[in-house]
Design a protein around this nucleic acid. Structure first.
Lengths: 253, 253
DNA sequence: TACTATTGTGTTATTAATACACCAAGTGCA
DNA sequence: TGCACTTGGTGTATTAATAACACAATAGTA
């Protein structure tokens, strides 16, 4: 993916600006046409796929680093982002460590380092994302969760952990606001939940429960023009939603 | 806490063996006499307190590093340990960065670095712990959660986050096994829950719920000899317990 | 206009959570 | 020994949450 000169430049730049041994990888979830999507990158001249990631500037908070990385890949600001796990097996970055050993000695080769990676997951409104490859990628694109390409390193495991975390999160936090468009119908929201959980839910019980949370407001006008019965449009009541994020949806004890 | 020569030795050793920029801090919870306890260290010749922590060896998985650090402080092996958050504000280690600037230039001073710290929390059986200070501490001791000394850096925030995580955990995972002795009475287990949650629970409902989880087995003999009515002794059914850890106690959706 | 797909809503049964009261066993003391 | 007090064990009624289920309304299409 790099030729020798590019590698040298990259390494010099990285060594000067970034914290060593630490990377960030992001699992960006979007929702479109009833499918949960994940943003992935394809390296130049290689059939290898990665989650969007990057490094932490020497004087940058890690949450800001994750935001910066995602802004570069999506064009979006103020993304819903959550740190979920650190992947710290010394073997995890091994395949990369060998990569450029003919070009540079390990001491000068940024990729010869072991990297811990901090996993973040992001929830974004699919249509607002402008997938943008980085300098060593030829493609940045959405993939269906059910149809992901084989990813390098431990990125498949990172994705799995992110998904598990998201599913857990669902039980005590509202999540639709960041994944749905401003207005949506109840069946559309249900589809989101069903997709994340990979499980059918009962329409009537879903609606009752969702409304009981008190985070939705129904607009006056139903959606017109579509086929079939005109569904009501809902949007999130942001104040109650934020509150539910903080307080949790229902307590255990 | 270090004199100049100690500092130089420490830094040389650290630079050679540890990953830079990364530390681990552990919140060790124990339970004794109806109180939730946390293990803390006091620096030599200073009135400053810290959570037990350390660094990651260059070729060591981070979970192993946390285990090693805790084994050194507690004498215990196979501790229940859970990674819960990375604290990555560049300001968090600032107070330490200045500490030895008269002894060594920043490039040679391990403590002049910014550190991300990976937070782990541990649940241990109080009586099995042998609190052991490290080389730059004069004391390693249990403190009541309600009566913690003022800690350095962001260690109070780390503790708070650990406690919040533990309280959340309580809702979908069993936790008593690691904190209670082998055999215990139902009121004792209840006290543990009440202490963690800082809230009174109803005796009868607690017992019903706990038994419904199916992770307890009642021994034949009640505890004799104590004052008052002899309570039954329970222990955890390890197989069901492990299963509940994996599966979660009750699902949301 | 019948048919079909989709959405909206209500009712009942089951299960879980909460609130509450009584009995049993042991201690200490008059 | 009888009584007060403490701790622990268990049951039951009420309420709330969840799960299961059926029918009516609307808009497009054949």
């Amino acid at each position: 993916m790099f030729n020798k000169q590019e590698l040298i430049d990259f390494c010099n730049n990285a060594r000067e600006n970034f914290l060593s041994h630490i990377s960030i990888d992001c699992v960006v979830f979007g929702f479109h046409e009833g499918q949960l999507k994940v943003l992935v990158l394809k390296m130049k001249n290689e059939d290898s796929w990665y989650l969007p990631g990057g490094f932490v500037l020497k004087n940058e908070p890690i949450d800001e680093a994750a935001n910066r990385i995602l802004k570069d890949r999506t064009g979006m600001d103020e993304i819903f982002l959550q740190q979920f796990h650190v992947f710290g097996d010394p073997e995890r970055s091994r395949p990369h460590n060998e990569m450029y050993k003919d070009y540079l000695p390990p001491s000068e080769n940024w990729f010869a380092n072991r990297f811990l990676t901090i996993g973040y997951y992001a929830l974004v409104d699919f249509v607002h994302v402008n997938p943008t490859p980085d300098s060593h990628s030829e493609l940045c694109a959405w993939y269906d969760l059910a149809d992901m390409p084989k990813m390098e390193l431990d990125h498949a495991a990172i994705l799995k952990t992110a998904l598990d975390t998201l599913r857990l999160q669902l039980n005590y936090q509202p999540i639709g606001y960041n994944l749905m468009p401003k207005e949506f119908t109840m069946p559309e929201l249900q589809k989101l939940y069903e997709t994340i959980l990979n499980q059918k839910l009962d329409r009537r019980n879903f609606q009752r429960r969702m409304l009981a949370f008190g985070i939705l407001s129904r607009s006056e006008e139903p959606r017109k023009g579509g086929a079939h019965k005109a569904p009501f449009l809902y949007s999130f009541d942001l104040e109650n939603y934020q509150n539910a994020l903080k307080e949790g949806l229902k307590g255990g004890w």
